[in-house]
């Protein structure tokens, strides 16, 4: 119970930090207060409705995005222990995070409007492009640790971080992390060329929960990189929870910053890159790790 509250508090705080950092990058010197102002505005805003919207599906999608992000975070070690200790935590993390596909498609579909629909379909295409390399990166980690349990993965990195001896898997993980949170170079489903895409018709509290879910997902995928590749809470002097927090903030800052410096990637080009370059590269990485482990 205590850990669950810590998880919710940590995800909420880091999500707000990410939003503030992004706002500062957007308007240097003056954007820091913008996220909180936006929250207040959305809380007060009246709901705008579209004609013949499927409200049940939209609500399911909006709340589902936040829910899958938090559930995926439940297996990540917060310093010593996660909220839910699972023998196959890596599989659980993967299963929850694909829930974002469903959430985005439901919102895009349910509001009965063209641009959100285009955005929803874009995310399904994006998912098909990033998911296989992402899974191979996770499998490489599990193979290196000989376990699907996050605690064992962290313990296996006591000598050397996986980021160091599985650089390809780490790089692919970071790419798939931004794709999963439809952030930065992978923000096609919510980009300006389709008027904001999936959440274009959302207003008031609906939009607030959707955005909160998106930031929560970004935080959780950044936080997962710490136990998977960066040695978890291991580090000199400071306690494990503080090391976990520091490393998470570093990865999160990198992901947020990437959104402001990299242009949006066209998904047909990324699909080609993903299937022709990233999948073979991750398979080679898997082979190398298998040989070393054997």
């Amino acid at each position: 119970m205590g850990e669950a509250l810590v998880l919710l508090g940590a995800v909420g705080t880091l999500a707000l930090c990410a939003a503030v950092f992004d706002a500062v990058l957007a308007v240097p010197g003056g954007g820091a207060g913008e996220p909180l102002r936006r929250v207040a505005r959305l809380l007060l805003q009246q709901r705008r409705r579209t004609r013949l919207a499927d409200t049940l599906l939209v609500r399911t999608g909006v709340c589902g995005l936040l829910a899958v992000a938090v559930l995926a975070g439940a297996v990540l070690p917060l310093g010593e222990r996660p909220v839910a200790e699972m023998a196959v935590g890596v599989v659980w993390f993967n299963a929850m995070e694909v829930g974002a596909w469903g959430a985005l498609w439901l919102v895009g579909w349910g509001v009965n409007s063209v641009y959100p629909l285009v955005g929803g379909y874009r995310f399904v295409a994006q998912g098909l492009a990033y998911e296989l390399p992402h899974m191979f990166a996770l499998i490489t980690v599990a193979l290196g640790a000989g376990s699907l349990r996050f605690a064992d993965v962290v313990a296996a990195q006591r000598g050397l971080w996986f980021a160091v001896w599985m650089p390809v898997a780490f790089a692919v993980y970071l790419v798939s992390a931004v794709a999963m949170a439809f952030w930065g170079p992978m923000d096609g489903p919510v980009s300006d060329d389709i008027c904001g895409g999936v959440p274009a018709e959302l207003s008031g509290p609906d939009r607030l929960v959707f955005q909160a879910g998106r930031y929560a997902l970004l935080v959780v995928v950044a936080a997962a990189a710490v136990p998977l590749f960066l040695g978890g809470g291991a580090g000199p002097l400071l306690p494990p929870w503080l090391w976990t927090a520091l490393k998470t903030v570093a990865v999160l800052a990198l992901l947020v910053w990437s959104g402001r410096v990299l242009p949006t990637v066209r998904m047909d080009l990324f699909t080609r890159l993903s299937w022709l370059v990233l999948i073979p590269a991750t398979l080679l990485q898997l082979l190398v790790v298998s040989v070393v482990v054997l």
Partner: peptide, 21 residues
């Protein structure tokens, strides 16, 4: 059967999305 249970959820979310398309 934790592993099989979670793999079913993982695969079914992806399959249903492709099926919906």
């Amino acid at each position: 059967l934790e592993y099989l249970g979670y793999v079913i959820i993982l695969m079914m979310v992806m399959e249903m999305l492709v099926m919906a398309v």
